[in-house]
Amino acid sequence: MTLLSLDNLTVRRGASAVVDGVGLKVAPGEFVGLIGPNGAGKTTLLRAALGFIPHEGASNLAALSPAARARAVAFLPQGRDIAWPVSVADLVALGRAPWGAADPGHPAVAGALSRMGLDGFHDRIATELSGGEQTRVLIARLLAQETPLILADEPGAGLDPEAQIRAMQVFADLAASGRAVVASIHDLGLAARHCTRLVMLERGRLAADGPPREVLTDALLARVFGIRAFHAETADGPVFQPVAVIR
């Protein structure tokens, strides 16, 4: 069974391909980190996979009706939009909309808030929170949707270290419980530690796909990112730290 299946997915902007012939299958249990330098096509890949933008090739999600898709996959966009000063509970409850009413009293809402360390934020006004807290609330909305697959565009951006680790841990736990997560991630250290699999994009093409230690090789890091990194196995698991620019 696959939750995400992309076949030769291509997105063109003018003459150039922003995403170029990407094939990807994600099964339950996987936490896939989507990595690549700025402009590699991570966001475009996620949006095309959801069917939001015109594309060539096939995506199983884009083929679904909007209502069916909302029950198959939850998506955290890169833009952290909260347009109105609604309460945190009301905002997180929007994740329940695909399943019927957006009921802030649904147990999934409290569960998601608690998973993101937001107990007690229930009645706070979402727009009055700090940027990082808003991101955590938006991730809680993602969790409250309770879909088999989660796509998240830079979920860790703007979070403090605790919240970053917490978010990665939540995604890893979801994957371990038989769901799947695909998240674009810039922090390669977090990606190396928490993801079960990394997919590296280079100018719209798939550069590498596999377990973190097979993807974060010196050669690929030099070619795709232009960096050199320190890498060690410790008692706390793999430690990965980019250390220098090499071009």
Partner: peptide, 20 residues
Amino acid sequence: GRGLDALTLGEDAAESLGMN
């Protein structure tokens, strides 16, 4: 109503919540 609520989260998020 439902769609406008979802749009609180932006156009992409609303679309991903099943709004047309």
